[in-house]
Simulated assay, not measured.
Amino acid sequence: MKQLEIIFWVLLFFVFYAFLGYGMFIYIWLKIRRLFKKDLSKNEQNFEPPVTLMIASYNEKDYLPEKVENSLALDYPKDKLRIVFITDGSDDGSPQLLGSYEGITVHHSYERQGKIAAINRGMRLIDTPFVIFSDANAMLNKEAVRSIIKNYKDPKVGCVAGEKRIIKKTTDSASGAGEGIYWRYESALKKMDSELCSVVGAAGELFSVRTELYEPVEPDTILDDFVMSLRITLKGYKIAYEPGAYAIESASASIKDEMKRKVRICAGGLQSIVRLKPLLNIFRYGTLSFQYVSHRVLRWTVIPLFLLLLIPINYALHDTYGGLYTFLFIGQLIFYGAALLGWYLENRQLRLKVLFIPFYFFIMNLAVFRGFFRYVRGGQSVLWERAKRA
């Protein structure tokens, strides 16, 4: 039974560390480091190199007028900002609609091979030193381009990750509210990651790369933005985080849509771990490997399994010792009971805000199991249909 106790506390430690402990650790680490390290950053002005804003879209005609208007309104010299849409496979009239706008370049192929195949094709046509990627349904703040590009004054920066923001609505579903909370926490972690060493992967809603560092990504890659950005760190560059550049989009329209999105991400996460094997070598990549394992690998691999194992192990310890183990077991029952109640009420369009966090935490970890089996079966197509947004 003593061995079971040890196993319990080890599993509990890793669960706590993956979701909260890592953030607490690097927060303290950075506080201490700032005491001995002066801030040498400067407010650089007049850095306005040519930039391409690339939007790869598939059958997103409904979003395009707003996206075009948003892109043309960005605060950057018009003669230095090229706006390019890649609409491969779209048959909803997207290419024709985009072709009616001045200042917009459209590259279209009738063959649909997936987003990353479209980006790979589009990158061969780019001649600017920097490229900013964004999604058709994500709206950027006016200063986004300037805020991103200023980071490239540092020659060590090879990629810049913008911030993803979820529109908060009073009518949001539990999954939508949970997604908003999750991304606020992720943004805080990314800011600390960037200061410590490097952001661990960029989100496709808004990120940028040095064109010369881009290398074509395998066409069956699920998380193209994640793999694309981290391969730049393998070349010795860092991913900077720029909260002054943000993309705004609505939350998923329903539990079904959010689960669909999460399962795809988890399947892609496992694929990414395999394709980014060198990053697991802490002797070569040091702090970056530590960040990668702590922030990403644990969540996409063992942590959901640890959560599952904690339930029967905790029950056995409660049955034998009582006391603290009983308290923790009751706590688990209450937490998962709240998550299941949140799911039940959400399916009936009834919402209690107190249930949002346990509900979202539950579906986030359930998606890892489903994503694992989908990845093992090879069932996640790169030609996925975007989850509906509210």
Rank of each mutant, 00 (worst) to 15 (best):
L125E: 09
I126L: 04
I126N: 11
D127W: 10
D127C: 11
D127P: 13
D127R: 15
T128K: 03
T128F: 02
T128V: 09
P129A: 01
P129M: 03
F130H: 05
V131P: 02
V131H: 00
I132H: 01
I132P: 03
I132A: 01
F133N: 07
F133Q: 05
F133R: 07
S134R: 12
D135W: 01
D135A: 00
A136K: 01
A136E: 01
N137Y: 07
A138K: 10
M139L: 13
M139N: 09
M139C: 11
M139A: 13
L140G: 11
N141P: 00
N141Q: 06
K142C: 13
K142F: 04
K142G: 12
E143A: 10
E143G: 12
A144W: 02
R146L: 15
S147I: 05
I148C: 02
I148K: 06
I149A: 03
I149P: 07
I149T: 02
I149V: 13
K150P: 10
K150F: 10
N151A: 04
N151D: 01
Y152T: 02
K153G: 08
K153V: 07
K153T: 15
D154K: 01
P155M: 06
P155K: 14
P155S: 07
P155Y: 03
K156G: 11
K156P: 08
V157Q: 00
V157N: 00
C159I: 01
C159D: 05
V160Q: 01
V160Y: 04
V160C: 00
A161Y: 12
E163L: 07
E163K: 15
E163S: 14
E163D: 15
E163T: 14
K164V: 12
K164W: 04
R165T: 14
I166T: 05
I166G: 10
